[in-house]
Nucleic acid binder design. Structure first.
Length: 224
DNA sequence: ATGCAGATCCGCT
DNA sequence: GCGGATCTGCATC
């Protein structure tokens, strides 16, 4: 780590969804495990899920249930949900009621060995090849496995107060020209209008991103 | 590099 | 009942 990291506060996270998603790129997610050790990863990819109109969002049409309640809580509250019978995804609520940012990929910067163990422990069958660092957290459910984030232990947490999960700024900045803005992933059934919205953000050239959008990257390089 | 099937189960209709 | 903000392995180009 380059310099002393500052913990993010309520004021830092008091942002509407899209601005929060962009703001979070380059920030650090920190996780304290039961044994006291701390894992850290830099956020390199995230996605917005808006409330109300957004057909891909769990809060579509203002739908509020016991499950998605954290999306309606103050900005900086965690929303973890269980998906596909075996995975979790990790979100951070933003300013608008019902809106949240899904973390899709992290660049591991501390505790890689522990992350590897946590990932391996979740595998059904033994790994054929050892996990490479870039494969530890390059997907929304992978980062949950590597950080031991489950609905059970990390849902509905205030990231500005928690002792087990928080955000940091270590001074690292992602340049605006290095932010790729493109379509979200995995929401094919949500209706074309919303599938196409540019609500995913990632750091250009970072090898820890889950899925690149080469068409968008090409357009960016052409308009230099 | 891209694509598809299968695993697997909670929460909502 | 049913579908899903995913991942892995295997097939094919």
């Amino acid at each position: 780590m380059s310099q002393a990291a500052r913990r993010l506060t309520k004021a830092d996270l008091h942002l509407p969804c899209k601005r929060q998603a962009v703001y979070l790129l380059g920030k650090i997610l920190a996780r304290r495990l039961d044994d006291g050790s701390v894992l850290r990863g830099r956020i390199v990819e995230d996605e917005c899920y808006l409330g109300g109109e957004d057909k891909a969002s769990h809060s579509y049409n203002g739908r509020q249930t016991a499950g998605n309640e954290p999306m309606y809580m103050p900005a900086g509250t965690t929303y973890v949900y269980f998906i596909y019978g075996m995975y979790c995804c990790f979100n951070i609520s933003s300013l608008e009621p019902g809106a949240a940012v899904l973390l899709r990929a992290l660049e591991p910067i501390q505790g890689q060995e522990q992350m590897g163990k946590l990932r391996a422990a979740k595998q059904k069958s033994p790994l054929k090849s050892p996990l490479k660092e870039k494969d530890l957290c390059n997907g929304p459910s992978k980062l949950c496995m590597s950080f031991n984030i489950t609905k059970n232990n990390c849902n509905k947490i205030d990231l500005t107060e928690s002792e087990v999960l928080w955000l940091e700024d270590d001074g690292f900045e992602v340049e605006k020209k290095d932010i790729v803005t493109c379509k979200r992933v995995g929401i094919g059934s949500a209706g074309e209008e919303w599938v196409g919205k540019p609500l995913r953000f990632y750091v250009l050239g970072n090898p820890h991103v889950s899925k690149r959008d080469k068409k968008t990257e090409k357009k960016m390089s052409e308009s230099d």
